[in-house]
Write a protein that binds this DNA or RNA. Structure first.
Length: 493
RNA sequence: GCUCGUGUGGUGUAGCCAGGUCCAUCAUAGUGGGUUUUCAUCCCGCCGACCCGGGUUCGAAUCCCGGCACGAGCACCA
């Protein structure tokens, strides 16, 4: 059969269900270079995590490299946030489990961009355009060539010098890449590559850059040149940048370069959050709507991490979504489900009593009770409850039932404030409630982010000595992350 | 408006390029049950989808044509 009809065998293989990410096209083991390029105008959001996870996963799979690149070339509209330069690499490492192989900062690379801009002007495939935005828009729409296209290279260099030395101010001139003006897609026609920014009034927040440069590359140009410099082989990014790719391919043709393999993913929303705009979050935080970037209501990586979402859960989540170009909206429950899988096996059990009501034991009983730290791992030891004082805390809601079983202890019959002892053995199907004895409890607060606010749920917490960051399971309530001995933050149920 | 892209169960996703083995995969959600001294974990069952209309073909989720819907780009933002 192999000899007769090899294609039949091939086909059968193709039919097998794929798992994990789709295969990278034209990838060579050990030679793959990918990048993730956020604007450092805030810490990373849930959405950024996709870029890191997918690119990082491919880099790992192909023994390649992942570049973390700061595209910080705008000082006016989306000014960078100085702290982000330190925070983003840390967050990326936490998420990936390894450090990005290279870190590149665009604002350090300006001389390279100038060099390529000059080459473009000298070789005649770029020009300095002095038309207003409005005027050029008309040219673009009507497929009319801008008169500035006819500038000689020497005139272009002269105008370029005026951009650089401050003769021109923002709005006076811009460098454009020549394309056919009758391209079907109007977005691509003679696209702008570099512009002037008023860095005297809006200095770059990095001290070493400040007001050093007046002329700055736009994303399409900066990114294209930088990908070439760094030897990027594969680009995986949002489909909102499809036209950007097309612009960049035109530029690569001018330079005689080959463009990297590019794939796209669609827009993702989370039912509970909507989108994740860093700029919008920044405004809301400044307006006092949130306490900071780690406010548990925010879809930032730092907030999620504080809330107890693990890096593994985020990785599994994004890999499962894959790289389709569909625009999707996912419920948080999907992420939570991944998170439960990643933490449940480790999370020690604790008892937390909301709206605590005290009851007094009535009848014969031992002086202490032992319950497991983790029901599936008896090797983790026992928790000891001292009940010699006879005072117990239970949730107000559980008091509505009169026949209950105290988890790990005994059946009781509730009569007012009295808990009359019943069978120690479990001999019926009565509901089981969690509880705490008076001596070993601490007054504690459970922070719950819900419906756009952070609720402070007060209650009695089982005394523990778990360090900050420990993921615990509050019996019958859900998972939470330890902040300190009297504070927990609710993760999910 | 112009340009580009996408349409598989409630939500995601595999299969589509190279048509049959697809009465369509896996996961999640929902629901029912089992294990369990948690409303947890784990296990089992059920539920439920190829955007619409033509065409090609013995045969279409898959190829072709036409609709429709949704999204993005058309910034001297990233």
């Amino acid at each position: 059969m192999e000899a007769e009809a090899p294609h039949l065998l091939e086909k059968r293989e193709k039919k097998e269900r794929r798992e994990g990410l789709p295969e990278l096209k034209n990838a060579v083991k050990g030679k793959v270079v990918l990048r993730f390029a956020p604007n450092p105008n805030g810490p990373l959001s849930f959405g950024h995590a996709r870029g890191i996870v997918i690119n990082g996963d491919y880099a790992k799979e192909w023994d390649g490299e992942l570049i973390l690149r700061f595209d910080d070339t705008d000082t006016v509209v989306k000014p960078p946030l100085p702290e982000a330069y330190k925070q983003i690499p840390e967050e990326a490492e936490w998420l990936l489990g390894f450090k990005p192989h290279r870190i590149v900062i665009a604002s350090d690379q300006i001389p390279h961009y100038y060099k390529h801009a000059t080459q473009m002007l000298e070789e005649g495939f770029g020009y300095v355009c002095q038309c207003s935005g409005e005027t050029f828009k008309e040219f673009r729409v009507s497929k009319t060539e801008c008169p500035c296209r006819d500038n000689t290279p020497s005139l272009n260099i002269e105008l370029w010098t005026k951009m650089m030395n401050g003769t021109f101010v923002p709005g006076d001139a811009v460098v454009r890449v020549k394309t056919a003006m009758d391209l079907k897609n109007p977005a691509l026609r003679d696209w702008p590559a570099l512009r002037i920014q008023n860095t005297a009034e809006h200095p770059h927040p990095r001290e070493s850059i400040g007001s050093k440069y007046r002329v700055w590359p736009l994303l399409d140009f900066q990114s294209a040149v930088e990908d070439k410099i760094q030897g990027v082989t594969h680009i995986i990014r949002g489909k909102d940048l499809m036209d950007s790719t097309r612009k960049q391919v035109l530029l690569y043709e001018h330079f005689g370069w080959t463009y990297p393999e590019t794939t796209y993913w669609g827009r993702v929303k989370v039912h509970e959050w909507g989108g994740f705009s860093t700029s919008q979050m920044r405004r809301d935080i400044e307006a006092g709507l949130f306490t900071g970037w780690d406010d548990p209501r925010l879809p930032t990586l730092t907030a999620l991490r504080n809330r107890g979402i693990t890096a593994k859960a985020l990785r599994d989540f994004w890999v499962e979504l894959g790289v389709t170009q569909k625009d999707i909206s996912v419920p948080l429950s999907t992420l939570f489900s991944h998170n439960t899988k990643s933490i449940d096996d480790d999370a020690p059990r604790l008892s937390f009593i909301r709206q605590p009501e005290s009851i007094t034991l009535d009848g014969e009983h031992p002086n202490q009770v032992q319950v497991e730290v983790h029901p599936n791992h008896s090797s983790r030891g026992m928790r000891t409850f001292d009940i010699s004082k006879k005072t117990l805390w239970v949730e107000r809601e559980d008091l509505l039932k009169s026949e209950v079983r105290l988890k790990g202890f005994a059946n009781i019959h509730i009569e007012g404030k009295k808990a009359i002892m019943g069978s120690i053995d479990r001999n019926d199907r009565r509901p089981i409630i969690h509880w705490l004895p008076e001596p070993s409890t601490t007054n504690a607060t459970l922070l719950v982010a819900e419906d756009g606010e952070v609720k402070h749920v007060e209650g009695k917490l089982e005394t523990h000595s778990y360090p900050e960051g420990t993921m615990v399971q509050l019996e019958r309530i859900g998972y939470a992350r330890v902040i300190d001995s009297t504070t927990l933050i609710f993760t999910h149920s």
